[in-house]
């Protein structure tokens, strides 16, 4: 087995005495696509929030590239190489798409306020570089023609993609996608799937929260299932889909596997 890129060991967190995530362990290897699924309120987004430093876990440890990150601030974690999108899109609506992506490059832009005020060579060189990079990323997601639109004016599907572009722009190796297909029609979802595969082919690692089982079964290398804050299953898509505990967790409903 390869050395994991991300290794979560027994994290727990509770709010006001109610446990939201309990002893969850999870690992991801480089260049994998891993999904985290579970019914509403299972604690998936909470895991993301702990991972990105929004919440401090009550116990447990998180290692990223062998380095412990669970007590670090969100800014530091971004710099280390983990970036995310949000369930309820959080783009900078009054900024152009390209500006949103440029904000993503923030931690890796090093010129000072002095440089930008006096337009030094360093500023121009770096700014040109970032703009170039931003457009390259927008190309990956097929948004290069919409770079000058305001993020808030984009159609829903494109907003999701713009968030992914922004996350990639941070230079992160591990991208956390929080329900990227939510609210998309089947055609948009297919596009998104291709997009995610393409991003993986570029060397990124992806952790995905998703409700759409078609997406999850189609794209994941491995799946973790969370119910009521606890991990109830993990493994290859096929195995997870046929796991009786998982089926029960989804209110006895059937999982629709395949296309």
């Amino acid at each position: 087995m390869r050395e994991p890129l991300l290794d979560i060991k027994d994290i727990s967190i509770s709010f006001g005495g109610i446990s939201a995530v309990e002893d969850v362990s999870l690992n991801i290897s480089k260049n994998e696509i891993v999904s985290l699924i579970g019914p509403n309120g299972a604690g998936k987004t909470t895991v993301f929030n702990i991972l990105t430093g929004v919440y401090l876990p009550d116990s447990g440890e998180i290692y990223f590239k062998g380095e412990r990150i669970d007590r670090k601030r969100p800014q530091t974690i971004v710099k280390k190489g983990i970036s995310r999108t949000f369930q309820n899109i959080r783009l900078f609506k009054d900024m152009q798409v390209i500006e949103n992506v440029l904000v993503g490059t923030h931690t890796r832009t090093h010129y000072s306020l002095f440089d930008s005020t006096f337009r030094t060579r360093k500023f121009r060189k770096e700014e040109d570089e970032k703009i170039y990079k931003a457009i390259e990323i927008l190309k990956i997601l097929g948004l290069e023609n919409k770079k000058d639109e305001y993020a808030g004016d984009l159609p829903y599907g494109d907003q999701r993609k713009a968030e992914i572009a922004r996350a990639i722009a941070t230079g992160a190796e591990l991208i956390l996608l929080d329900e990227p297909a939510a609210g998309m029609n089947p055609q948009e979802t297919d596009e998104l799937l291709n997009c995610i595969r393409y991003i993986r082919s570029l060397g990124y690692t992806i952790l995905l929260i998703e409700h759409d089982m078609r997406v999850v079964m189609n794209i994941s290398d491995r799946i973790y299932v969370l119910d009521d804050g606890k991990l109830i299953a993990e493994g290859l898509p096929e195995a997870v889909a046929n796991n009786p505990r998982v089926i029960k967790a989804y209110l006895g409903g059937e999982l629709h596997v395949g296309n």
Binding site: P74, V78, K79, S83, R84, F86, R90, L91, F92, T170
Partner: peptide, 11 residues
Amino acid sequence: GDETAAVMMGI
């Protein structure tokens, strides 16, 4: 625009 998102971008 969005303080939380800004934090998540490393700002």
